[in-house]
Structure formats: structure tokens, C-alpha cells
């Protein structure tokens, strides 16, 4: 049986987990390593760490946290933020991360995707897409949601998949931090276009939201705010999702 994944996302700034609303107004949520351990014990299926300061300030992602996490956590984890080159990716992966996620660098240099995939395998490459609704559909934003590229998000997802991305981490900027549910239309559009696993992100507020994005075709649901603010726990969410008939690893 194939299980859908629940993935807590830790936006990290200087070793601390932060949570914003629509990519702005950051609030501190706790120490990255101890939160990661807590979620792991609660039964998270995977973890995502995004160094949100890195891309904006042009700093390369710190590998110390990666190493520490790899020593103490025995579930897969993705590290993203500030990865610009094959060397950056190699450093993170050699420190024990299972996957890297690239966003701005992939948009600006799409050939980075096959470069990393060839060396470390497609499964190690997660292409993160920050999408915002516009008149025609959704537009891709880079630099942590600061720059509108005007690229169509669905087309970009399809291209990333064909270039060798292993997964797509799709964040709806409109829904991010609102707790009012995922952008279902966006998720199902990307799901139909790209034949690789999809991690939906932005807007999770309840088990119902997670169920509906799974039904739209997403393979994994990314959660941040509702877990960081202790509004619910992973075991409780999983139980609720499983009772709706969606297979969950418990």
C-alpha cells in the first residue's frame, strides 16, 4: 500500500524556525533541531528545512544544521534555500540531507536540474515553485517571493519534471499562512501536467484541507503554522485523514 505523506516544514533563519504570513511578517517558532526531533517522534513522514535568509542575502545554506539533523533524525529530509550551484547541492547532500530543493537557481538556470539529477539521481532534486494567482493562471515568483518572473507555474512544473526533477514542492503564495486551505485548483493543474510526485504547500488549516489536496492528486502535504502553533498534532491529523479513507502511515 502507498501512503500519503505529512511533511512538517521548518523555515529556518539563523537556526531558529520562523513562520510568516504570505511570505512576510515573520514570527519565531523555536529551535530548529528540537522541533525537528519532536515532529519526527510524532510520526512525521519527512521533513523540509528551508533556509529563508539564504537566497535573499546570497549566503550559502549552512551545513552544520544539516549534519546535526542527519545524526539524530532517521526519516528523509530536504534542505533548501540558497542553493545556486552543483557544488552547493553536493555539500548539502554529502552532509547527510536526502534531497535538496532549488527554487530561484532553477528558474534562472534550468540546466542545474539535470546537472544535479545526473550526479545524485532525480530523487534528490526537489524543485520548489512559489506561485501566485494572476489573471491567466499562476505566476512563478523567485527570491523568496520578491520577484515576479511572469513564468506560468504549471508550464514551469512540467518543464522541471521533464528536465529531471524528482518532486515538486508547490507553494501557493496566496494561501500561505492563511490557514484557509490549499489552492486546490493549482495543485490539480500541476498534478495533471507533471508526472512526478507533488508536495502541496501553503494554507493548511485542518485535516479537511489536507484530505482535499490529497484527493486533488498531491502525494504529500506540507504543514507549518498549524503544527508550530500547536493547534494540532501529527498523530491527531493523521487519524482524522485516515478516517476519511486516505492511507496514512501510523
Amino acid at each position: 500500500m502507498q501512503y500519503k505523506r505529512i511533511i512538517p516544514c521548518l523555515d529556518v533563519k539563523c537556526g531558529q524556525v520562523v513562520k510568516g504570513k504570505s511570505f512576510r511578517r515573520l514570527a519565531y517558532a523555536g529551535d530548529a533541531l528540537s522541533l525537528a526531533k519532536k515532529y519526527c517522534e510524532q510520526g512525521a513522514d519527512e521533513l523540509v528545512f528551508l533556509d529563508i535568509a539564504a537566497s535573499a542575502q546570497g549566503r550559502s545554506t549552512y551545513s552544520r544544521l544539516t549534519r546535526k539533523v542527519a545524526q539524530e533524525i532517521f526519516i528523509p529530509f530536504t534542505v533548501g534555500g540558497g542553493i545556486r550551484t552543483l557544488e552547493d547541492a553536493a555539500q548539502i547532500l554529502q552532509n547527510g540531507a536526502d534531497k535538496i530543493s532549488i527554487n530561484t537557481a532553477a528558474v534562472e538556470n534550468p540546466l542545474l536540474i539535470p546537472q544535479i539529477a545526473e550526479k545524485f539521481g532525480s530523487q534528490a532534486v526537489v524543485v520548489a515553485i512559489d506561485a501566485k494567482r494572476n489573471a491567466k493562471g499562476w505566476s512563478v515568483f523567485t527570491y523568496g517571493g520578491r520577484k515576479d518572473t511572469g513564468i506560468d507555474a504549471v508550464k514551469w512544473a512540467k518543464k522541471a519534471a521533464s528536465l529531471g526533477a524528482g518532486e515538486i514542492l508547490l507553494t501557493s503564495m496566496d494561501q500561505d499562512g492563511t490557514n484557509s486551505g490549499y489552492d486546490i485548483a493549482l495543485s490539480s493543474a500541476v498534478c495533471a501536467a507533471a508526472n512526478i510526485p507533488l508536495i502541496a504547500s501553503g494554507g493548511a488549516g485542518s485535516a479537511k484541507d489536507i484530505c482535499s489536496v490529497f484527493k486533488a492528486g498531491a502525494d504529500a502535504a506540507l504543514l507549518a503554522g498549524i503544527l508550530h502553533r500547536n493547534e494540532t498534532t501529527i498523530p491527531r491529523l493523521k487519524k482524522q485523514v485516515a478516517s476519511a479513507g486516505i492511507p496514512m502511515r501510523t
Partner: peptide
């Protein structure tokens, strides 16, 4: 399989 790579938890 429709989606590859086959990523995730399986029984």
C-alpha cells in the same frame, strides 16, 4: 507506474 520516482512510505 504513473508517477516516478516511486517516493514515499510503502507497506
Amino acid at each position: 507506474c504513473k508517477k516516478l520516482p516511486n517516493v514515499g512510505w510503502r507497506s
